[in-house]
């Protein structure tokens, strides 16, 4: 009787594993199905609970214990926040029986996240010349890209090149030819609207999907902004923010006049369609 009671919950949970103590999930007080966001929230809550200066521990838990608990929480979070480490850990403690086939996309992006590690054409990238390689790459691209746009086709290899870099702006935006074409549009801010936005994007030569991918603006909103579909868009403050990062990605870091012009168009639409709302 005693033995059964003392050991009834442990073996089923940890089959054949020499690990003892709570799992990382138990430490963070989350379920094994929790999303990354839930884990992060739990982590932040627990970190504030056990951090020095937290009153919640007063008179109950000593400082060393709090520090130990905090170390464990940090460790648990470090593993669970990293998708690949979490998967390995799940397998190790027996939550997942065997590794699921890794989705193709994940590997693709996983490889491309770190520009330092991603294989590059023309190799020979050593760590001191990172910056050089980075700027040199832009030059290399500006040679490659005009060919592509002349062909008018998008080869898979080109996509790889585009995603292989982590940069704020689309790579072609520094091309002098492109800059000149863009300047033509920027110089006439009063007529700037969604059409101008589309033109700018086409000059740089990138699809809407790339904008969405890199700026995280929803594709609906990108389409809405480009087609002047104001009723589909959120409130003005969001639109201005979207425009700013959109234009930033096209290489126009301080296009205040364009944003103002677009705002004016938006306000005009608003006043004409909903005159009584104010």
């Amino acid at each position: 009787m005693n033995e059964q009671l003392g050991s009834d919950f442990k073996p089923s949970k940890l089959p054949g594993n020499a690990r003892s103590g709570p799992t990382y999930y138990e430490i963070l007080d989350v379920s094994t199905y929790s999303t990354r966001l839930q884990i992060r929230e739990a982590y932040i809550r627990l970190r504030s609970t056990y951090s020095t200066g937290s009153h919640a521990l007063y008179s109950l838990v000593s400082e060393e214990e709090a520090r130990d608990a905090l170390d464990k929480i940090e460790e648990a979070y470090r593993v669970l926040d990293d998708e690949s480490q979490r998967k390995e850990y799940d397998i190790a403690i027996g939550i997942i029986k065997e590794p699921a086939p890794r989705p193709q996309g994940a590997e693709f992006f996983g490889g491309s996240v770190d520009p330092m590690r991603s294989p590059r054409r023309g190799g020979g990238m050593s760590s001191p010349s990172v910056h050089e390689a980075f700027t040199g790459d832009v030059g290399a691209n500006s040679e490659v890209w005009p060919e592509d746009s002349h062909e008018g086709t998008r080869s898979p290899s080109r996509r790889t090149v585009t995603f292989g870099k982590i940069k704020k702006a689309a790579s072609r935006s520094s091309d002098p030819e492109v800059l000149a074409a863009m300047q033509a549009i920027i110089s006439k801010p009063e007529s700037f609207d969604g059409k101008g936005l589309t033109q700018l994007r086409e000059i740089v030569g990138i699809p809407q999907s790339e904008i969405q991918e890199r700026t995280k603006i929803s594709i609906e909103y990108i389409k809405g902004m480009e087609n002047n579909d104001f009723q589909k868009l959120p409130s003005l403050v969001y639109i201005r923010g979207f425009l700013k990062i959109y234009l930033q990605y096209l290489g126009l870091a301080d296009a205040v006049t364009l944003i103002e012009a677009y705002t004016e168009k938006y306000n005009h639409w608003r006043e004409t369609t909903r005159p009584h709302s104010y």
Binding site: R45, S54, A56, L57, V61
Partner: peptide, 17 residues
């Protein structure tokens, strides 16, 4: 905010301790 967070910290401690 830290006063407000105290509640969830105490909730956690009470369950654990």
């Amino acid at each position: 905010q830290s006063d407000i967070d105290l509640g969830s910290s105490m909730e956690h401690i009470c369950q654990k301790y």
